[in-house]
Each structure stands twice: as C-alpha cells, then as structure tokens.
Design a protein around this nucleic acid. Structure first.
Length: 552
RNA sequence: UGUCCUAUGGUGUAAUGGUAACACUGCAGAUUUUGAUUCUGCCUUUCUAGGUUCGAAUCCUAGUAGGACAACCA
C-alpha cells in the first residue's frame, strides 16, 4: 500500500551517511528563536527535521535559540512547544542555547588563548565600515592585534559588567579580506545589560547566532543541522569555529524556505501585522501561523500532508495556497459532520403543509463514513433556504428554485415554487411553495426526479449563530515583493462576520468537532464562542463549480 | 562590477547518462438527494549556446535570468 516516494536531497544525504557508517543513528534539531509564534514555514522545517529522524531512526531535539534577551519571551516558548505538539511531533530533549552560555564562554576564552579572537572597542559604525563591501575587502580594526593577555582581561571585564552596552565586542580573528563577508572578523559576543527569560541577570554578554548555533549543535552531537538558504554563507564560519575549537563536527545543510501565495511568511512581517493590529493576534485565523490555522480549523494531518506534498529542494518557490486548501478539504471531507446552515436566508412557506405541524427527519452525518451515523432535524411549514438558491428569472443551467420549478430539500421533500411575494421595493421576501408528500427522503414514491438539491432549516427551531468567513490576507500573489509597503496590499475584506441560521443539533457542537455546512464549506467552533452565542470559523469553502460558471 | 546558491508545464516536485512523470490549478465530461465527494479525459514542461557521449533534464564550459551576502537579529 505504501507507495515508494523518491527521496529528497536531504534524505539522500542521510541515506548515504548511514550506508557509509558515518553515523549509527541521526540526530536533528528544531531551533526556533522564542521571539514570535511559529508559522507554516516552521511547519515545513518541523516536518523535515522530525520526519528525517522518524524515517531513518534517530531523534530530534527542540532547542530554543535564545541568545537575544531583548526580543525573547517565555510566552513564545510555551506557544512554540504547544504548536509542535499539536502538529503531532515529540522532541527527544528540550534544550536552550542559554543552557550553554557557560560552555560558550569557555569556547570563547579558548579562541582568545589561541590568538583567534580579540576584544574590539570600535563602534558598530566603525565595524560596519571595516567590513568593506561584497566587492571590496575590509580593513583591520586598530584593536585587532591586542595581546592575548589583554584580550583575556578585557573579555573577563566585559563579562563582569565593567562596560556599557555597545562599548566593546568580542570578534573572531579570521580574515578581513575574505571574499565571504561573514568571515571578516565576525562578532562573537556583544554586551547587553538585559534580563534574559531564563538566565535572568546572570549574564551581560550574549553570544551572537554564529557563535552559538553551531556550537550548540556540536554539544548536542547533531549529525544533520538543517536550516534555510539564507544561512549558506554562514556555513564557512560554522565549520571554522568547529575546526578551531576541535569539537564534534556537526554539519549544516540548507533548503529553500516556504513561500505561499497571498500571504507573508516572515516573523518580522507577521509581528508587524499583530502589533499594529491589522489582525487580531498571532492566532488570528487569517494568519499563516500554526496557531492561526489551528484556530481556523485546519487539522494537523492536513498540514503534514501539505508539507509532504510541497517537497524539499533548494530553489526559491511560491506555493499556490490552493494546494493547502486541497489538503485540508481532502481530510475534512473524510471526518467532518454534515450540517445544514442557511447563511443568507430567504423565507419559504410550504402552503400545503399543515400549520403547527412539524416532523423530525433523519439525515446522515457523513456520506463518506457510514459509521458516523445520522441525526434528526425538524421540518415544518416555514423554512429558510439560501437566497442564492432562488432566482425569479433563472439563469441558464440553473437547477434550483424558480417560479414553477422544483427542487429537493436535502433529506426532506421535493417542493415546487408557486408564488413569489415581494416588498414595496420589489425585493423578494417570501416564496410560497407546495410540497409533494410522497417525495419524502428514504421513502420517495413520487417518481419525480429533480436535479437540484438544496439545504434548508426550519425557522421555528433555527439556531442563530455567528459565522466568520475568511478570505486571503493580501490582494497580491506575492506581498513579499512589495516589502516596503506591504500594508497597501492588505485585503480589506479578509474577514466577514454574519449571523446565520443553523439546524438545532449544532447547539451541542464542541471545539474539537469539524463540520461541513452542506454546500457552503467546512467550519469549526471559534474560541470566542460562548454558550449563548456560538461562533463558527469557516476553515475553507467547498469547491464551487457553479460559482465559477457565474464568473464566466 | 566579487563570492556563493538556483534554473524541468501556470504552481510545486520527480526522473540519479537510456521513452520527461506525479500532484495542485485550469478546462471538458460521467456519476451524484451536497453544482461537494468520486471517476474519466484534455491543456501545458527540461533557460540559451557550445562540448563530452551510441545516447544528456542529468556530466563539462560559457552565457543569461533569479536569489543570498556589507544587523552589536536569528
């Protein structure tokens, strides 16, 4: 049953390493910085890193890259852990780069002792100037040739808090003329008198990414350290530190990050949307964050399937959001309970159905899953149908309700439109119909075949609920291209709230259930929901080929 | 006018020197008590030029195009 899927380039590397006996088992890691919530790009990385360990036998560590106390918070740590678990993955060990601050300090001292690092008094502007440009070599800092003893003392003083923020830094002594800018005496430590979410005020010097990440990988014996393409130029430095320190040789590999149409996938931009209140928090259902998608009703299965389908490669990509929608529909179609909810109501009176009478009709919960059983819903003389399901002057190929035409009410009777009642402005307010008693679902002996089947809800028992429909956050395919003014491309109609009329069984809906409001879309209970006011999020619409017909 | 990375249908991804394929999208049709689902079919692909080879999407060279790199961010 399991069809052979060809390996991506990272799987090939792992397979080769394993075959060559380079490792007995692999160790990967997922290294988020706790300065924001996880998004779909992280989901891709999580599926990759955990997936590799699962597939080839090994383990994956969760390691928070918490080397910048100014932006990092415990709230994010908890959010990130929650998201990973929800996606369905379990980490082997939970580590923090801050666990290694002591070790890292020793590494730095070692490099100083070997003449490979020095304390620099230059300002950040001066250092930037010294760096040169990609096409021009840099120049040496005037402090580059301090003695080892002096460097040792100054670095100890930095640690001891003798200097103010920015007054001094520790730099690696590599090569200011190196063609790779990252090798031009990169910063290893900077002074920040800031409170760290885990180490508190123990430290006032903090290692830079380049002097923390690779060393952390090495300490944990990570065999395959996988990151995104923008870190390719860092690899030389990654290897340089490991070599000079003579520590466990972890190796870095890079793959292309995920981009999706009509959204942004950068923590910085997502943070801007949140902090400037263009969305309602990190878990706003319009956000491509894991928490947002969870709130919107996406399932972990569908996200994992998506990550599997998009593949892993090294070229820039822009994934069509419709692939994600396909994945979630595919899963929800199998598990969602079918319910009838009228969003834009039009009153229908069934004139030959006795006043005051009502009957319970049975309807299956999921035609894809007969074990899901059925539920009952009331039928009576006055019902709501969808405004779209009636046309006074029917369009071509329209097979719903129209004067003189018949439709089937799903799981109920066939009705025929007899009379259209309008208000003073000419707007249709009620449609009078007759029903065919012999056409009852399950015991239809009418012999009538109608093409149209529509959903409905009995007015007397209808449950008013709020439904929130979401559209794309941005109006342009790739908002990242208009970096400086991405807000101009925000879709003003990305959120639509409405009161709809639901069949009464929905009263008992729970947060973990998934629903298909028949002919409308997939929905789930939103966290804003209360006992008195149910709120549903539209996860995704159903495919609608009739709507496309209309656009032609 | 540097170094590095990348280049296969509209979008992704495969083919690992031997007939370019799979998925999504789009289009058409069948079935359908959801215009859903399911099923069938169709459209559309190797950046360019040389070279190696019996044979190149694949290897080599050059070009072109796109991306990354000059934060005391990660």
């Amino acid at each position: 049953m399991t069809e052979e899927k060809s390996a991506n380039f990272l799987e090939e590397i792992v397979e080769k390493d394993l075959e060559a006996g380079k490792y007995k088992h692999i160790i990967t890691r997922f290294p988020p910085e706790p300065n924001g919530y996880l998004h779909m790009g992280h989901a891709k990385s999580i599926c990759l890193n955990f997936g590799l360990a699962l597939k080839y036998g090994g383990k994956t560590n969760l390691r928070f890259d918490d080397t910048n106390p100014v932006t990092e918070e415990t709230e994010y740590v908890e959010g990130i852990k929650n998201d990973i678990k929800w996606l369905g993955f379990n980490w082997s060990d939970e580590f923090y780069a801050s666990d290694y601050f002591g070790k890292l300090y020793e590494f730095a001292v070692t490099l100083i002792k070997n003449g490979l690092a020095y304390v620099d008094d230059s300002t950040s502007e001066e250092i930037a100037k010294q760096k040169g440009t990609p096409t021009q070599p840099g120049t040496n800092s005037p402090y580059r040739d301090r003695s080892i003893e002096e460097n040792l003392q100054l670095f100890a003083e930095m640690k001891a808090g003798k200097y103010k923020d920015g007054e001094k830094v520790l730099r690696a002594k590599v090569d200011m003329a190196h063609v790779n800018m990252h090798m031009r005496d990169p910063l290893m430590y900077r002074i920040k008198h800031a409170h760290h979410h885990r180490t508190g005020d123990t430290w006032c010097i903090y290692p830079m990414y380049d002097f923390a990440h690779g060393q952390s990988d090495s300490i944990e014996n990570i065999t395959h350290s996988i990151c995104t393409l923008e870190f390719v130029p860092h690899r030389a430095l990654y290897d340089w530190f490991i070599e000079k320190l003579n520590i466990y040789p972890s190796h870095q590999y890079e793959f292309a990050r995920l981009n999706m149409t009509y959204t942004v996938m950068s923590k910085r931009k997502l943070l801007k949307l949140v902090s400037e209140k263009y969305v309602d928090g990190w878990d706003d259902p319009r956000m491509p964050t894991i928490s947002g998608m969870r709130r919107r009703g996406y399932t972990p299965e569908s996200i994992r399937e998506f990550c599997d389908k998009i593949g892993i490669a090294k070229r820039e990509n822009l994934i069509d959001i419709s692939l994600l929608e396909f994945c979630v529909r595919e899963h929800l179609n199998k598990i969602a309970l079918r319910r009838m909810v009228v969003v834009d109501p039009l009153k229908v009176v069934i004139t030959n159905y006795p006043e005051g009478k009502s009957e319970m009709l049975s309807s299956e919960n999921n035609p894809e899953d007969h074990d899901a059983g059925s539920r009952e819903m009331p039928f009576s003389r006055e019902i709501y149908i969808e405004q779209d399901d009636f046309m006074e002057v029917p369009a071509k190929k329209y097979f719903r309700l129209a004067p003189g035409q018949m439709v089937r009410l799903k799981s109920a009777y066939i009705i025929r439109c007899e009379e259209v009642i309008k208000d003073a402005s000419g707007k249709v307010i009620t449609v009078n119909c007759t029903y065919i008693p012999e056409s009852k679902s399950g015991s239809d002996v009418s012999g009538i075949n109608v093409k149209g089947v529509i959903h409905w809800v009995s007015i007397a028992e209808a449950l008013p609920v709020e439904i929130r429909s979401y559209d794309r956050l941005f109006n342009v395919e790739n908002p990242a291209l208009i970096d400086d003014n991405m807000l101009d491309a925000l879709n003003p109609d990305s959120l639509n709230k409405k009161i709809a009329y639901a069949e009464p069984s929905l009263k008992n809906a729970t947060a973990d259930e998934r629903f298909q409001f028949m002919r409308t879309g997939y929905f789930c209970i939103d966290s804003d929901s209360t006992k008195d006011k149910l709120v549903f999020n539209r996860t995704v619409t159903l495919r609608d080929t009739w709507a496309k017909e209309g656009k032609k």
